[in-house]
Every structure is written in C-alpha cells, then in structure tokens.
Design a protein around this nucleic acid. Structure first.
Length: 215
DNA sequence: CCTGCGATTTGCT
DNA sequence: GCAAATCGCAGGC
C-alpha cells in the first residue's frame, strides 16, 4: 500500500506493457519497494500482478528468506548459485532445483544483505492458453501455477531471468488492482523445508483457491 | 482424500 | 555421496 503511493503517477502507457499493464495499473513497483525488510515485502507482494512476456496473474502465495534463517540458501555465505541474493534489491533470483524445476525469487533488503521472497503461486489472469500449452497436459486453471515450479513453467521463466531487474525488464510486477484491496493475508510455516519450520514466513491470500497448499 | 516414491541435476559436505 | 525452497503418479483407505 505504501508502495502504491510511490508509483501512482500517471502518464502514457508503459512501452511494451500491452493489455497486461492496463489491467494492473500502469507502472511496475519501483526498485525501492524491494529494499525493505523481506517479510514486509513478502506480505505486500501478495495481491500484486506478476507478468512475463504477456503471461501472468495475481500473486497469491509468497515466502520470505534471509541470512539468519537456516533454510535460506545464503545462510552459509555466498556461492555461485546464490550470488544474486547478495546484490541490489529488485532483481530476480532464479535457481534450478531437483534437477528439473526453476524457482523464482525477488531479491530484497539492501545490497550486501542477502534476502529474497520466493513467489510460490499465481492466480492466472493473462496468456492462459500459453500457460496451458507450456503446462500440458494440465488444463485446469487452478493447476497452472499453484506451486513455485509450476509457476515458472507456466510463465516460461528459467535461468535466463536470473539477476535481471523486475522493476524494468521482461519480468515485471505491478501493484494490486482495486478489487484486491482489503483481501486478507494469512501467515503460516513455509513449505518443503526441514529447518526453520517454526517461523511463519509464508504469506497467502485468504481463501484463495490457487494456493500450492491450503493455508 | 491422503501418503509415499521416483525423476534428474546441481551444489556443497 | 547425498540432500534439495518440487511435481506427478501410483496405491491405499
């Protein structure tokens, strides 16, 4: 909500934004939106719209990770894989997991302080047929992007996006549209990790049917 | 509905 | 050598 005020300026349509941008507000969230405490950003990203080359939807589930957290890739210092997490905020940290899935994070906090928000699930809104063809044979709307690996597959996100800014670039995030104002957020333990499970750093849109798992 | 397991590659112990 | 921020399928209840 704070971020919204920061980018409410009006003007001509964003170049290359197309119908996607029109549906979610004209301007992408600014770089400074991400340069804040990672749990705050994770919570506020729920309800925002994620777009990649004309395909995307509303973020309904996120998780926060930071340096002090044993489940975080950066907990034990910098490696070739997690290097982007140590860089400036507002960039995509994409990595390859289980030998077959890509997972998308957005880098947060100040440069040098590794932290990121994992984008876990999306309510599909645009480019649905392209999502279906990438996710084939899956056809059901709720199964297209209700998980971090599925989401990257549906949107065509891979290592080529690693390190790229999401405030400008093929991957973009827009503030919530008016109908999402007031949607509740539920915090729960994170999914798929074996340490740090006591933290409730997973944020879900209350009542959404597009979550990877029920909140 | 729920639980368990195999796929398949990388990164780090 | 093994675990991993996952997914989809098989099998049981």
């Amino acid at each position: 909500m704070k971020a919204e005020g920061a980018c409410m300026s009006q003007g001509e349509p964003v170049a290359g934004g197309g119908p996607a941008a029109a549906g979610a507000g004209l301007k992408a969230l600014p770089r400074d939106f991400y340069g804040r405490e990672v749990n705050l950003v994770a919570r506020e990203l729920v309800g925002c719209r994620l777009m990649h080359e004309g395909v995307g939807g509303v973020i309904v589930e996120t998780e926060a990770y930071n340096r002090n957290d044993p489940a975080c890739h950066a907990h034990r210092g910098m490696t070739e894989r997690n290097r982007v997490m140590f860089g400036p905020p507002g960039r995509a940290y994409v990595y390859f997991s289980y030998g077959m899935h890509h997972l998308l994070n957005i880098v947060c906090e100040r440069e040098g302080e590794p932290a990121a928000v994992l984008i876990r699930a999306l309510e599909p809104r645009e480019g649905i047929e392209r999502m279906r063809s990438r996710r084939a044979p899956v056809v059901e709307l709720r199964q297209l992007a209700n998980g971090p690996g599925k989401l990257c597959q549906a949107l065509g996100i891979d290592l080529a996006r690693n390190g790229e800014p999401v405030y400008r670039g093929p991957l973009k995030i827009y503030p919530p549209d008016s109908e999402w104002q007031g949607t509740g957020i539920v915090a729960t333990p994170r999914i798929g990790i074996s340490v740090g499970t006591r933290r409730k750093w997973r944020y879900c849109a209350a009542g959404s049917r597009f979550l990877s798992r029920k909140a």
